[in-house]
Nucleic acid binder design. Structure first.
Lengths: 328, 328
DNA sequence: AACATAATCGCAAACGTTTGCAAAAAAAAT
DNA sequence: ATTTTTTTTGCAAACGTTTGCGATTATGTT
């Protein structure tokens, strides 16, 4: 059975299409009597308006695009979840696309967003994305692009980020306040601006005691596991490990279980995290909260204010707080 | 700047809209010469076809809907990721909607899918969903609905599931083969068909030694943590814990860390899992794989075969395999 | 009864495509 | 030069809505 349209309803009722349309949206021009019969027939015929036709006619798709490297990720999934929640409340739908760390697919996803005439795009670029011109050009078509989390480093564009610098400082200060003597700092991919920011701020905050810090880089939890295992097996081993992300924390914790180390007696742990992982361990891990959920809310509100007219470039940051566990 | 249309291109070139349309899709009727100039102008004007107009005209949205209780979940996110991947390859986009365990929102999401005239829907119903008539009625509008994971228990409909029964039997047999004497089985929400299936098969496989099994139900990892902690503190404590899901495994593992138990010496662990969590612990946890990723692939291929004409109801199950860690 | 006003409704164009069919132009055959 | 065939292009309708404006009908005022 083909789905019912305004036309079909109008024919059955002997009314014009426009009257039916207006009746269904409670337009004052239509009498109560006709409204009634129209609504009645519409419900029995299970009428649902064709979104494509509406979008075409009104030139407003009520859809946002979300482009992420991967959906299946502790951070992005909570970002997406909160954006979806907010969007639904405001009558928007979401088209979600993952780039799989492939810039070609990423560009194709961008194209898809344009073809669908989305009202705006939330994008987290892949680590290898260099040329962000294609993104910026979308503003010529009146499609706002909001970068989040991993954002372009230099260009002027709309960004919402975690307060990476602040977060790293909080972590460093916590370590200092506990009077730690030998810190292993495990950071992510060197090429990402987010890594640079966090590392730089962390080193800076420890600068008076720079010699207590040893830095490593890991690109996966397996790598973090290997590094942690090796470093924590040393005779003169670190008394504290700082993990830049949940991924790294997971690797480190596996090494700690493997080496049967006691937290925080043998080694203290502090991490930056979305908040889920630290509560899975005992004792619970102390972390600086880098919430994907909250970042999603911030990004969404930025999008709405952009659409409301505030179109100048803006870089927003989300304040970070320390959530204390018993790991340091 | 408003985006370019076929009309605009046709006006500039002094051609008709239809010629431009055909030129851009390499229609044999159009001469090479005109094709050339049309394509050239289209690229310099950055033409992208309006998906809404195409969908309206062709009555084919090339979009699938995905409705899940929550995006931010170890299992659903990998399911979604694989469906997205397959869809993209076949030229489909995804509208993803989360129901937040709220049947009202769930129904609204269903309505959204209809309004968008999606080509099909993948849905995992919430635990509290009782009435699935609204889902089944979509087939009257030629919208196939494929239920996955948590599927309606009795109704005839298209389902793709893990081989829950088989998986539970594998776990039980593994336990038996290790000659375990006292098993704590922690299962999920009693109302879910998936729980019933797994529990029933598990009990059945242990029926000769039914007295060795103690069953509990947990609705969150916190609850699983509390149960495990309590049970594993008993003097005559279980020598094995079976966890029905990743969520439960996470709670159990926290309790084990808290009680400083050694795996598998003090207690053995076996779980059903998507595959990510068991590798985060040391020793790695033995589990029966219940892969969201693979289930997504199965669901997608079922959708495609349905669209290709195989519209009779069908219940597919995904075989499960044991992945051995060192936890039992 | 005649008119002004207010309440209802319908016409038709537009959004940007696709596509069957007819028309025009070019090429080929007589 | 005329006709036939082939190649190339354009017309117009349709997909399902929304909306400005004009038309019709009902109501109210003298």
């Amino acid at each position: 059975m083909t789905s019912t349209t305004l036309k079909k309803i109008s024919e059955v009722l002997g009314l014009s299409i426009s009257t039916v349309s207006r009746a269904l949206k409670n337009h004052p021009d239509i009498s109560e009597k006709t409204k009634q019969i129209v609504i009645e027939l519409a419900t029995t015929l299970d009428y649902e308006p064709n979104a494509n036709a509406i979008h075409l006619r009104t030139k407003n798709s009520k859809v946002f695009g979300v482009i992420v490297p991967s959906i299946s990720n502790f951070f992005y999934d909570s970002f997406i979840a909160s954006v979806e929640e907010e969007s639904r409340k405001m009558g928007y739908s979401l088209i979600i696309l993952q780039s799989s760390d492939n810039t070609e697919i990423e560009l194709n996803n961008l194209k898809l967003c344009r073809q669908n005439r989305v009202n705006g795009i939330f994008v987290c670029i892949t680590p290898s994305t260099q040329n962000i011109q294609p993104f910026l050009r979308l503003s010529e078509f009146n499609i706002p692009v909001i970068f989040f989390d991993k954002v372009p480093e230099f260009e002027a564009c709309n960004k919402v980020c975690l307060a990476d610098t602040q977060a790293a400082i909080i972590a460093a200060n916590t370590i200092l306040s506990k009077n730690k003597k030998k810190v292993l700092g495990i950071f992510g991919n060197k090429n990402m601006s987010i890594t640079k920011k966090r590392l730089h701020a962390f080193e800076d905050a420890l600068k008076l005691k720079k010699n207590i810090l040893h830095v490593e880089h890991a690109h996966s939890n397996e790598e973090a596991h290997a590094i942690s295992k090796q470093q924590l097996s040393l005779k003169y081993k670190p008394d504290t490990v700082f993990c830049m992300s949940d991924e790294i924390l997971a690797g480190t914790m596996k090494a700690i279980q493997e080496l049967h180390l006691n937290i925080p007696k043998d080694v203290a742990i502090i991490s930056m995290s979305n908040g889920f992982f630290p509560k899975l361990y005992y004792p619970e891990i102390t972390y600086v909260e880098t919430s994907g959920y909250k970042l999603g809310q911030l990004a969404f509100s930025r999008m709405m204010s952009y659409l409301a007219g505030s179109t100048f470039m803006q870089e927003l940051t989300l304040d970070c707080i320390l959530i204390e566990g018993q790991s340091i």
